[in-house]
Amino acid sequence: MSAVVSREHAAPHHGAHEHEHHEVPYAVALRANRLGLWVFCFSELFLFGALLASRFALWGNTRPELSQGLGLITTSVLLLSSFFMARAESAIAHDDRPTFLRSLLWTVGLGTLFFIGVVVMEWNVFGLEANLLGIELFGHLKLTDGAFGAIFFGMTGVHAIHVLSGIILILIVWNNGRRGHYNAEQHWGVEACAVYWHYVDVVWVFFYPALYLIGQAVHL
């Protein structure tokens, strides 16, 4: 990754052939970087797969009664953030910098909303109670609610950490983009960040039905 990043950053300041003799060609490094990133994604599958397996081992065909409205809203927000991340990558691939920067900020905003939806509202860290149009806005499941609490907080917690790290990465990419880095030909940093963010989204695509939809709801 370092070779590609250094070329991305060096591009505005140096001639195209200046470092050719000492660096791996961009296309070759790009292929290696892509493979490395996907290997990382697959290695993360073991972590998320284990959590998913624990859910089925401990909950079986049951699940705790959660706010269906809140689950659907947070899931939709995360899917929408993935759309804006894809739009940001497409924009820089076409040298459309304003759309690129704007879309990144939308992704950060929606990612933050998802994080708040899970950590503040679903976890209900402030112990609040509220309804909006019949949708229960704050969860009631506690960490001490046996296997239900342990699995729910474990799965959403590990995922939320990934969301948070994704938001930080996107902000770094946004700051680099604002300073003129990346262009249509060389934007590995943007692509890597986008793949990571979509990966976090894919994990939630499986976590959402596992936590909110599969099995018989149990009232605690």
Partner: peptide
């Protein structure tokens, strides 16, 4: 396929 562009893994060209 459409957001992560997984097919780029086995493609020769760059972005």
């Amino acid at each position: 396929n459409y957001f992560m562009h997984i097919y780029r893994l086995w493609r020769e060209e760059s972005h």
